[in-house]
C-alpha cells in the first residue's frame, strides 16, 4: 500500500522524525505467533509536526480507558513495532510496570520526551509502547542496539527524570532476542509485548 508522505504544514513546528501510531489488540482465542500478531497491529496515522501530533493524539482514547489486552505504539515512521523489524532486531527495551490508573499520564510524558528528543542518544530510539493488561499496565521504550550500555543507561536515566519515577521504581531491560527465545520456548509467541 502506498501512503501519502506526511510533512509539516505551514506555520507548524516540525518534529525531528515522523512518527506513526499503531494499535493492537490480542484476540484471546488465538496464539500470538508472528503472523497473527502482524494481522492484529493496525497503523492509525503518521504525524510530522507538534501540531499534527496534538491533533491526532487529542482524538485518541486515553490508554487508561482501554479495556482488555491492548497496546498503543508510537514508532518512528518506517519502523514496525515488531522484534523482527530491521531496526529492532538487535535492540531491546526498558520496561516499567505501572499500577492501574497511571498509564495515561506516563504514556503522555514518555511520548513528549521522545518527540522532543530528550533522550540524546542519536538515532537509537525506535518507539514507545503502552500495554494495557489486567493486573497492571506496562510502559516500554525500544532502542536499536541492546548491547550499547552507554545508550541504554542514558535512556534509563532520562526516563527516571522525565517520568519523575520514585527512586525505588524497578526498571527492567530486555533484549528482543531474549524475549523471542523465551516466548517461543513456551508458546511460539515471538512478537511485541505479549
Amino acid at each position: 500500500i502506498r501512503r501519502k508522505t506526511v510533512t509539516p504544514g505551514a506555520g507548524e513546528h516540525p518534529l525531528q522524525y515522523n512518527y506513526t501510531f499503531w494499535y493492537s489488540r490480542r484476540t484471546p482465542s488465538r496464539p500470538a505467533n508472528t503472523q497473527s500478531y502482524e494481522q492484529n497491529i493496525r497503523q492509525m496515522g503518521t504525524v510530522a509536526s507538534v501540531e499534527q501530533f496534538w491533533k491526532f493524539y487529542s482524538h485518541l482514547v486515553r490508554p487508561g480507558d482501554l479495556t482488555g489486552h491492548s497496546d498503543f505504539h508510537l514508532f518512528k515512521e518506517g519502523i514496525k513495532p515488531m522484534w523482527e523489524d530491521e531496526a529492532n532486531k538487535n535492540g531491546g527495551k526498558w520496561i516499567i510496570r505501572l499500577r492501574k490508573g497511571l498509564a495515561s499520564r506516563f504514556w503522555e510524558n514518555i511520548i513528549l520526551a521522545m518527540l522532543g528528543e530528550q533522550f540524546m542518544v542519536g538515532e537509537e530510539i525506535c518507539g514507545v509502547v503502552v500495554s494495557i493488561r489486567f493486573q497492571e499496565d506496562i510502559l516500554s521504550i525500544w532502542n536499536k542496539t541492546a548491547n550499547d550500555q552507554v545508550t541504554t543507561s542514558r535512556i534509563r536515566d532520562t526516563l527516571r527524570r522525565v517520568l519523575n519515577l520514585p527512586p525505588n521504581t524497578i526498571m527492567e531491560y530486555k533484549t528482543h532476542n531474549d524475549s523471542l527465545k523465551y516466548m517461543s520456548q513456551f508458546t511460539g509467541d515471538n512478537s511485541s509485548f505479549r
Binding site: 525531528q16 491533533k55 487529542s58 510524558n109 530528550q118
Partner: peptide, 21 residues
C-alpha cells in the same frame, strides 16, 4: 545536522494553538 529539541512545556503550549485542534 541540528537536532530539533522541544521541552515538555513548549510541547504542551503548542497543544492550545489553533492549528493543533
Amino acid at each position: 545536522g541540528t537536532r530539533i529539541i522541544y521541552d515538555r512545556k513548549f510541547l504542551l503550549d503548542c497543544r492550545n494553538s489553533p492549528i493543533a485542534r
